[in-house]
Each structure stands twice: as structure tokens, then as C-alpha cells.
Amino acid sequence: MTNTTTRHTAIDPTTAHVSPTFRIGGDLPVRRIGYGTMRLADGPGDPTGPEARIWTAPADRAGAIALLRGAVEQGVQLIDTADAYALGAGEELIADALHPYRDGLVIATKVGVVRPSPTEWVPLGHPAYLRQQTELSLRRLRTDRIDLLYLHRIDPAYPVAEQLGALRQLQEEGKVRHIGLSEVGVEEIREAQETAPVASVQNLYNLAARDHEEVVTYTAAQGIAFVPFFPVAMGAHATPGGPLDTIAKELGATAAQTALAWLLHRSPTVLPIPGTASAAHLAENIGALAVALGQEQFTRIEAATRA
């Protein structure tokens, strides 16, 4: 098979300046704090934890639309969603709020997971299904081309080459600009790169969940965006008087802002997408871009959270 890997400019995370922007795929410049829209949905269960059902459209639709518009007005350039969020209602909400999309706004969505019930998230990577769901996403988002389309999960029932081949076909047809992967390891990224260029990887990663360190390092070396979801989960070290709280006070920032600043410092290709239904928390998260975390402070956080 022909290797179609697109290698973007390699970045050394140990020496690179902490820039406020990054170019996804080499040609989509965005500010490095995006907005994840998963929380803009209703459903049974706790809407704030990892077990949130994300099953129906938000009851307060006007409030959700105002929050999305507020995010863009405050400079957010990366909006992240998925066809599985509220069975497509999340994509429709984004279109209602933000279409026609202003120049420089990047909309990312995902295909490859089915929702038979509020508690089930089942990978489905049949190539024809992936192409069909992308067509539906295009309609719901009211666009001719999706800026960044993720394979939501790799389905072990189908070869990776077939799943990525479906997305590559959509890319060649002009319906997808860049391709991403979600919840993958380094070897899976490499295998996917044999079929299609990978512009972004979205995994669970934060100060309390560090299983994907190798992926963060690999994506930085490849110039691939690394988009951590649940980026502000902080763990016990964020308690009052703890190391994160102490450094936050030194910086005149909140613990959440300091956790996001740590991610921005960790690798120059990291693009956190904190999600919230609160306008105050949204402004707080965006404010992390202005937090100047020094190398010594970064190292102290690193040491404390690995202890």
C-alpha cells in the first residue's frame, strides 16, 4: 500500500515557544483553547461527569445558542462536536447558532459511533456507514465541507485501512478538509497514516489522566494537533493548598486556568477543548491563554501530578 502520510512541520516540545495559536493540518490557524459542545445536551444522569448521557437537545436552547455565539465572540476558533451527541441534535444546534460560519472558524465533528440507547456508545466503522453519517453531518451543519472530521472510535470489526479509506474518499471528494482520530495509541495512528493523512488526534488527557503521554509526544513530533477532551479534570492535587492551587495563586489565575496552561505548555500542538454550559466558566477557560506559566512552575506541576 502506498504510504500517504502527510508530515507537518515537526516541533520539539522541549524548546518551542508557547504560542497562542496552532495550524491544524498546516493550514487552519486556530487559537489554542477551543470549545467542546458535548455538554450542550440533555439526558438522564449527571450532565457534568464522564457518564453523562448526552442524549437529547438542550432544554434551554436559547441559552446554548447564546453560549456558542459568546464563545466565538470571545475568540474561540475551534468548535468540537459529534454526530453521536444527542443523535445529531448537537450539530444542528451549532448550525442554528453559528451559520453562516465566519471566516477562521473551524468546526470539527466525528462519525463512527452509534447510540442505540442513552447508555450505549458503540463503534461502527463500516465504510459505507461512515460515508453516510458524514453526509448527514454535512446537512445538519449546513456546509459543503467539514473542516475536521474524526473517526470517533476505531472499530475492531473492520480493517483500519477500510475505515480511514472511507474518510480519505470523502476528503478526495472535497467533503472533508482534514481527518482526525479519537482515543488511539501511537501504533494506531501510524497504521492510519498509511491510508490517510492524520491532522488531529483527540484523546482523554489531563493532569489526572496521563495514559497518553506517548501520543502527546508523537503528535508533537509529527506536527499533528493533539486535542485533549475533559482537559480540566485535576484530581486531588488541585485541592486548596495543593501544588496546583499554590501555583495558581502565584500566577493570579484559577486552578482550572493553571491546569489548561500546563496543557498548553506540555506540547505546542495541544489544543484543549474544555466544555461547559456556564458563561462564567467559558470566559475562565478562554482566559487560560493569558496565563504565563513558567518552566519552573510547569516542572513543579509535572512532579506533583506524577507523584
Rank of each mutant, 00 (worst) to 15 (best):
T2F: 06
S19F: 15
L28F: 12
G34S: 01
T37Y: 10
G45E: 02
T48E: 07
G49P: 09
I54Q: 08
T56E: 13
A64V: 07
A64L: 00
I65K: 05
V72F: 09
V76E: 13
I79P: 10
A82E: 08
L87S: 09
E91N: 06
L93C: 00
D96Y: 12
D96A: 11
D96C: 06
A97S: 12
H99G: 10
G104W: 12
T109E: 05
G112Y: 03
S117G: 15
V122M: 03
P123E: 06
L124R: 15
G125Y: 07
P127S: 03
A128R: 10
Y129V: 01
Y129L: 03
Q133Y: 00
L149E: 00
Y150Q: 01
Y158L: 04
P159H: 11
A161T: 14
A166L: 05
R168L: 15
G174W: 00
S182K: 01
E183R: 05
E183Q: 09
Q193F: 07
Q193A: 14
T195P: 06
T195A: 10
A196M: 01
A196I: 06
S200I: 04
N203D: 12
Y205D: 07
L207E: 05
V215K: 03
V215C: 04
T217K: 12
Y218T: 14
A220V: 04
F226T: 02
V227G: 07
P228K: 09
F230R: 14
V232N: 11
A233C: 04
T239N: 11
P240T: 02
P243E: 12
L244C: 09
L244Q: 04
A248S: 07
A248H: 09
E250S: 13
E250V: 03
Q257V: 05
Q257I: 03
L260C: 11
R266F: 06
S267W: 07
T269Q: 11
H281K: 13
H281F: 09
N285S: 08
G287Q: 08
A292C: 04
E296M: 08
I301N: 08
A304P: 13
R306I: 06
